[in-house]
Design a protein around this nucleic acid. Structure first.
Lengths: 227, 227
DNA sequence: GCTTGGTATATTGTATGCCAAGAACGAGAA
DNA sequence: TTCTCGTTCTTGGCATACAATATACCAAGC
């Protein structure tokens, strides 16, 4: 439990919601694949005590988190942080590919030129091969890029659906970006995607985004055998 | 001991979960777009009394339902059944299109011939133009067809994600199927989709499914102004 | 020493009570 | 008559008490 960095909760919104946000943030900030299995347990009372609230809002928060599959509950045995199996992670990437490729289509068809241009700026600081030296920041930028495509689609439902699985995608991307020069290919892919969007080629943009995501899935499938 | 064929005892779902299922079923069985706005209110105490449970499981159930956007909660003013605006319904169709088209791709690439053939059977009873006389059953079959594509993808995460928005898609399809001969076009589309899957043409199947769904969105956008 | 049953303890699941925020309603004044 | 202010009542939010069940530990018998 000490592995979770719990922040104090905000003062607006209901205690339930703030509790949810606090626990969610704590899980998000933790590399859940690298902590002891015993640390995955979430003790209602301990969470309540540490957050300074009663068990009721903690339980409601856990119910929410269970729904977005961040935690799992075993009846009568409580909640623990959900670790996805490799097969599940692959499925998540497939869903992400579906959502992001649809988003790319919408961006190509409806986004403003300025909006599309903003995609380039995300990688502006990484020109000239300085990626390897700033792998963490590049990994963040990478994720932001994909998130931004979904944002620019203007489809709120798409964004919310994607948000639900974002946490898992984040951990995948974070772990795989450092592996054998994938970032070289990655940045080339991104530029092609941006070009397709700028050319307003919806079909191409959709396909490139999908294939980029599915390539990640294939990579994880082939390489990450320790999941 | 091994001689006894013991099944695990019915781990009768918790009251919370059963409460959730009961409320969900009740909402699903109601045409939420045709009842008085005052009927949309969900009173915790009343629900608890009618279900014979306390308010706690009712609240947990409502939290779950809120997460899947079947109900909305206004802080300090309680829960009510969520009616989607037209814009939101259009977005939902877009998300559905994204998920189902990805599913179609997977089906074309991985499903067995028998599985694909089962898609035809769904419409077997509607041959010979008997659709108009059995519009309700056709509407159901229609929905089952689209659900089945997602099932056949074999991607559980895809299925669960789609399930979350299924209720809304159902109500849309149900209301629009009766409108001006859409079912004629609809059944032709479906046959083309099946043919593409049988031909293992992933690109075509994906496109047909997507366009079929987006055509529904366009239809709703143009026709259903009373949402 | 190992197995097995019993008991204590810890922890979740559910019910209930209290409180505070809004809404509804009524009374009084303009 | 209408507007406004105050009171009451409804209703959700949270805490806590109680019940049900799983786990761990210990003791007794083989």
């Amino acid at each position: 439990m000490a592995a979770l960095a719990l922040d104090a909760i905000r003062s607006d919104a209901s205690i339930s919601v703030r509790t949810y946000e606090a626990i969610r943030a704590a899980i998000t900030a933790t590399n859940i694949y690298e902590i002891e299995p015993t640390q995955l347990r979430l003790d209602e009372r301990e969470l309540a005590a540490r957050l300074g609230v009663s068990r009721t809002p903690v339980r409601e928060a856990l119910v929410r988190l269970e729904h977005e599959e961040l935690v799992v509950s075993v009846p009568r045995r409580g909640y623990s942080i959900a670790r996805k199996s490799k097969a599940e992670l692959l499925e998540i990437i497939v869903v992400w590919a579906a959502l992001e490729s649809m988003a790319a289509r919408l961006v190509a068809l409806t986004a403003s030129d300025g909006a599309i241009a903003s995609l380039r700026e995300i990688f502006a600081t990484f020109e000239g091969g300085r990626i390897a030296a700033h792998l963490d920041e590049y990994s963040d930028a990478n994720l932001r890029f994909h998130q931004r495509i979904i944002e620019l689609s203007g489809c709120e439902t798409l964004r919310r659906t994607a948000d639900g699985i974002l946490i898992h995608v984040r951990s995948i991307r974070h772990r795989t970006i450092a592996e054998n020069d994938r970032f070289e290919k990655s940045i080339v892919d991104h530029m092609h995607i941006i070009e397709a969007l700028e050319a307003r080629d919806a079909e191409l943009a959709e396909r490139l985004v999908r294939d980029h995501a599915l390539a990640l899935a294939a990579h994880v499938d082939a390489n990450d055998n320790d999941l």
